[in-house]
Nucleic acid binder design. Structure first.
Lengths: 112, 112
DNA sequence: GTATAATGCCTCATATTCCTATGTATATTT
DNA sequence: AAATATACATAGGAATATGAGGCATTATAC
């Protein structure tokens, strides 16, 4: 089973940052990493990923550079910046907060 | 602090069903209930709520009926159906699954 | 008494964000 | 030689929450 689109919305950034916090990766590698770590649950589409990477680079959350390979083909590598690390912490906290509140409503344990 | 729009996406239905699983409510009451139970975190806008209620009624997840008050003014009350209860269970399970997988990625505890 | 806020229902235009489809190109496997 | 996997990129369409607006009644504050 894979992640419902509606729930994925808004979480692409935190997923990408989490991957890059581990080590620098290129786009396709990020997709594979998320796929493998979640056992197929998060299979991010390229049409989702690349626009995100471009925006995140513009926002200085990540830094891209071209890396040539012995084979010849160049790949675009990305690494997380210090801005990106801060943002990752912020998004993680935001997520925890969201989870706490949603659980509270689903469990009906508080309120009037 | 209130819930980020992007995270709320896809969770409106489960929030509404959770409220109505407690007791029948009218639209405005649902907003107030969610607001109070989450201490202001989930403040669903009416532009979000009412289209959802109409769609959910059409999908037989909830049932609406007009209730007149001593004052004279009518209010539209909604109650959850058995379909709605099933759907609530399904969405709760889906949410738990999503949370499990996102946590797994954020904590970087599994995978290659 | 009258203005203001709160209650209560509803719709539409807009922004955001993900997906599908498509295009290009190289490397590896069968 | 063909099929698949790797790798980057963009355009068009679909879904969905928000903001702004409209309408009407009731309670509260001045």
């Amino acid at each position: 089973m894979s992640a419902p689109t509606e729930l994925l919305k808004g979480n692409a950034t935190v997923l990408i940052l989490s991957a890059l916090a581990r080590e620098p990766m290129h786009g396709y590698g990020i997709v594979k990493h998320l796929d493998s770590i979640s056992e197929g649950y998060f299979h991010m589409r390229e049409g989702t990923l690349y626009p995100h990477l471009h925006r995140m680079e513009k926002d200085a959350l990540i830094e891209g550079y071209w890396k040539s390979q012995t084979g010849g083909r160049e790949r675009r590598m990305y690494q997380i910046t210090s801005n990106g690390t801060s943002e990752l912490f912020r998004l993680r906290a935001q997520w925890n907060d969201f989870h706490l509140n949603l659980t509270r409503v689903l469990d009906q344990k508080a309120g009037a």
